[in-house]
Design a protein around this nucleic acid. Structure first.
Lengths: 189, 189
DNA sequence: GTCTATAGCATGATAGAC
DNA sequence: GTCTATCATGCTATAGAC
């Protein structure tokens, strides 16, 4: 199952992660995938079309990976901790969050849609988990689920920014540790 | 005081903010600044040189703006609140954090240095403030200053990401509210 | 499906006149 | 200091042969 079309999408996914939409050329995609010019334009209408397929797949994959931790075993706090502390390629950054810095993606409703949807889902899912924690008596009632959920997703995304600025994973881990410590304060266990 | 050199740097700052290093061409800089090709290459050695001047100025400006709130009046919590809630052009994102998504900036030690320095300073300065809060008895001793400081800077940076993904400032404000509420838990006042 | 050829324009920079 | 001319290369896509 390593069709040309498949290799084109995978190469585009890698390049979007590494260089963004503006920084990725059709030529680079062709070279990385081993597909020729004619081949690429046979399977896809162009850079935009290919990027859309790549972004949709990356977004879907990210949601699936997160749901693994969210629906795993343990208390709400343990599941959130498992998600935040999951192994990540920190210096590469988030393949979805990265796209929000691309002017041509943000300006294009079609390309932005899967990015928007992913973070909306992520914030919503974490809000649900925090509400579940409160209902179960694991978390203090004073906690604001929606605001806390957004702060956690933002901490992850910003942690990548700090790590890439420093050329080190250290600030990422500090940030994640920080938000988890603050959250732990609200644990009733 | 609107010399050609000055206008070139200012135009580069704007374009780096809007489109990043990879997405900014010398031609675009010339057009925005109103300077000709020869003029640009007379004042600067090229795109790299111009970008360095622009990034250094943006970084300096960002530190100065933050220090306004940090050294302002009020308790530590109030000053941190003033910083986090300061008016910002949320949908434009952070002009410094944005650069961490640029492959050619992260790969270039010279261009990355001012970005690195800015966030190192910001995290350090917030760590100091939180330590001061503990010393003064304004904040609970259980708080981890370094981790909390990193989480706060990350929340801001990630807040921009979420806002740009959503095309709305709402997630940014949720995230900032969330981290402030968590921090307020540790207030002893 | 894949190939090569070609197009029109942009990139990033240099050269040398004024 | 600023201008125009020029350069080799790259971008994104289309055309049409195989």
């Amino acid at each position: 199952m390593s069709s040309t079309s498949e290799r084109l999408v995978e190469s585009t996914r890698e390049l979007l992660w590494e260089r963004g939409y503006v920084g990725t050329s059709p030529k680079a995609i062709q070279q990385r995938s081993g597909a020729g010019q004619g081949s690429m334009y046979h399977h896809f209408n162009g850079k935009h079309d290919l990027a859309l397929a790549a972004i949709r797949r990356t977004a879907e994959e990210m949601r699936a990976k997160a749901e693994e931790q969210f629906s795993g075993p343990g208390t709400v706090l343990e599941r959130i901790g498992a998600y935040l502390l999951r192994e990540r390629d920190v210096l590469k950054g988030c393949p979805v969050g990265r796209l929000t810095q691309d002017p041509e993606i943000v300006a294009d409703a079609v390309l932005r849609e899967p990015v928007d949807e992913t973070f909306a889902w992520l914030r919503g899912r974490l809000t649900e988990l925090l509400e579940e924690g409160r209902t179960r008596g694991e978390l203090a009632p004073g906690l604001d689920p929606a605001a806390t959920a957004s702060a956690m997703v933002a901490t992850l995304q910003g942690g990548y920014v700090l790590a890439r600025a420093a050329g080190s994973t250290e600030p990422f881990h500090q940030a994640v540790t920080g938000i988890l410590q603050l959250l732990a304060t609200h644990s009733t266990k």
